[in-house]
Design a protein around this nucleic acid. Structure first.
Length: 279
DNA sequence: AACAAGACCTGCATGC
DNA sequence: TGCATGCAGGTCTTGT
């Protein structure tokens, strides 16, 4: 599920459930995620109060009252959401959290590409997983020149560059396709050629797409749900993603002639685009 | 140094 | 029906 809008949607939904609350009970049912959940994870969290919920790129950061923090990642199929108390545990409910207010949260992740780690909050920014992340695309400082500087000299495609979390943090396969469409840039264009007005267009397209997706609670393809269990609905607003052969929403042109949205594979991953509008 | 594949894991849609 | 194949929102690690 999780690109920036999905992770941020989860973060916002977790705030009323977790902020200021103590973790009364934590159960690790399946520690084998992307990396093993650290031994003693449940013990370290039990009794701790949650002081802040942050996000960096696609990572969730849960700061505790003892100077430690949980680094969470939802991988491809992860969710962190409440489950009905009566519901039988699902085999993919890997970690359970209960607060002193009685809220029950479940880290659910069929593919187990997600992660739950512990780190010292003081050195979080220099943690190996976070240290090399690029700028936050929704920060004011992220603009055309800032993006162009990150892309300068890169000979990979702009599609591949935007997926690189060191260039900009939080974009994934969906929002890269959507942003490039909105900016009118071909996914095959060399990253280093995105300068000047093109970079300005791309940076503002990225912001606009992410903000719109956030307003929809993210995109639910199969696994994403908000912290309260409800689904996102930005998938209904996709211009190009997973729309191969369908008409481009920006083109009046004849579908039979243009073929509509095309799919291509770059670095092993699907890219969707409109050849008529993206150069 | 940059970039492209391979790896990790399960579930689902498709086609024979 | 059953089975094989390929694909899926990510990213660290390995190989060129």
């Amino acid at each position: 599920m999780p690109e920036l809008p999905e992770v941020e949607t989860v973060r916002r939904g977790l705030e009323p459930l977790l902020l200021g609350r103590r973790l009364a009970r934590v159960v690790v049912r399946q520690p084998l995620l992307r990396w093993p959940v650290p031994a003693g994870f449940a013990r370290a969290l039990t009794g701790r109060r949650v002081e802040a919920l942050d996000r960096r790129g696609k990572y969730l950061l849960i700061r505790l009252d003892d100077g430690r923090a949980v680094i969470g990642h939802l991988g491809m199929s992860g969710s962190l959401a409440t489950r009905p108390t009566a519901a039988a545990p699902d085999p993919h409910d890997h970690v359970l959290f209960e607060t002193d207010a009685g809220a029950r949260l479940t880290f659910h992740d069929p593919r187990r590409f997600g992660a739950l780690l512990l780190a010292d909050a003081a050195g979080l920014a220099s943690h190996p997983l976070l240290a090399h992340l690029g700028p936050e695309p929704l920060d004011e400082a992220f603009d055309g020149p800032a993006l162009a500087a990150r892309l300068a000299g890169k000979r990979c495609s702009i599609k591949a560059a935007l997926l690189d979390q060191r260039v900009v943090a939080g974009l994934g396969n969906i929002y890269v396709s959507e942003s490039l469409f909105r900016a009118g840039l071909s996914p095959r264009r060399l990253a280093g050629t995105v300068t000047g007005a093109r970079a300005v267009r791309l940076a503002s397209a990225i912001k606009a797409v992410l903000l719109e997706a956030l307003e929809s609670g993210g995109s639910t393809l199969r696994d994403h749900r908000r912290a309260d269990g409800t689904l996102g609905y930005f998938q209904h607003a996709f211009a190009v993603y997973d729309r191969e052969g369908l008409p481009c929403p920006g083109c009046d042109c004849d579908l039979a002639r243009t073929g509509g949205i095309r799919r291509l594979v770059q670095n092993g991953r699907s890219t969707f685009f409109c050849a008529a509008r993206q150069r």
